[in-house]
């Protein structure tokens, strides 16, 4: 068992012939992910790397290959359209890596995603990986190891930092999910926490948050009420000044809300062990698992 990606995943890559799409498709295939198709309008009929058929549209790819999941590497102004196309084609999982999508585009496409019953992860996220099984997105497989800790995060490279600490200490992961750094995202902390709570192969959860918004506070509330597995958490941006967007469109302290201090207090109140430094993840996870 694992969360969101497993042996039944049949992946279509939207934007497969682009610079990022082609590079990461090779990486995903090398990791063992079942990439069944690619989509680039105008390049239908070609074959990627001699093995993956390319189609003009997602609907054609689904009809021809039985794809059930999509990953999106298309430019920002086209990405919301690509999400809509994947949802319309009936895909159950859509992972959008693209960074810089106008937020209004996301507010317009989200109702369609919900109507079609699709799960969108991202945008502006590194995707997800179930170590040893497969990955959808850009998380480097080399730093992960199979195991029983689930990880959910709003950022990319900070996730790598923490996963790397875990793997080096011999603590493997069930699934790592990057939910993305934008204000409007398809899957939030609570969705992933619920999946980890009901996953028999996950024993403990690491949650990486950051300044901006109130998702971490809501997640803490959810954990206090619904999650029985131990949770270790981190909040990035303690030194961030108010009113400045810290790279991620979602990472901005507005007025007195969305601060790191507020989020850390909510974590502690919910019984989450809070890391002061990324490296603390190993000690806290071992403590909470009684090892």
């Amino acid at each position: 068992m694992s969360v969101f990606v497993d042996a039944t995943t049949r992946l279509v890559v939207q934007g497969i012939t682009g610079r990022d799409g082609s590079f990461h498709t090779k990486q995903m295939v090398a990791y063992g992910t079942n990439v069944v198709a690619g989509v680039t309008p105008g390049k239908g009929g070609q074959t990627f790397e001699g093995s993956v058929p390319v189609f003009h549209t997602v609907a054609e790819a689904v009809r021809a290959t039985g794809a059930n999941s999509a990953v999106i590497y298309v430019p920002p102004t086209l990405a919301a359209g690509a999400i809509a196309e994947a949802a319309d084609a009936g895909l159950r999982l859509i992972v959008c890596i693209t960074e810089g999508i106008p937020v209004l585009d996301m507010t317009k496409v989200m109702p369609l995603v919900r109507d079609r019953g699709a799960r969108l992860i991202g945008p502006n996220c590194p995707g997800l990986i179930t170590p040893g099984v497969g990955k959808v997105g850009i998380i480097p497989g080399s730093i992960c190891a199979p195991g029983r800790v689930g990880l959910v995060s709003r950022s990319g490279t900070l996730t790598y930092e923490v996963v790397n600490h875990l793997t080096k200490a011999g603590v493997g992961q069930s699934t790592c999910v990057g939910i993305g750094g934008d204000p409007v995202i398809g899957t939030n902390f609570i969705d992933v926490l619920a999946a980890f709570q009901s996953d028999p192969d996950t024993d403990a959860i690491v949650m990486m948050g950051e300044i901006g918004g109130t998702d971490e506070q809501k997640a803490a509330d959810y954990i206090a009420k619904n999650v029985t597995k131990p949770v270790v958490g981190f909040i990035a941006g303690q030194t961030a000044p108010p009113g400045r967007r810290m790279g991620h469109a979602g990472a901005i302290v507005s007025g007195s809300s969305g601060t790191a201090a507020e989020k850390i207090a909510a974590f502690k109140a919910a019984g989450i062990s809070v890391m002061e430094r990324p490296m603390d993840v190993v000690r806290l996870i071992k403590e909470r698992l009684g090892k």
């Binding site: 900070l158 790279g247 002061e276």
Partner: peptide
């Protein structure tokens, strides 16, 4: 730093070890 989350965490760690970050 590469990545916004890691950049923020790096600033925080500078502060944790008694320094002051000059920038994000």
């Amino acid at each position: 730093v590469n990545g916004a989350g890691l950049a923020m965490a790096t600033m925080d760690l500078v502060k944790y070890y008694g320094g002051e970050p000059a920038n994000f």
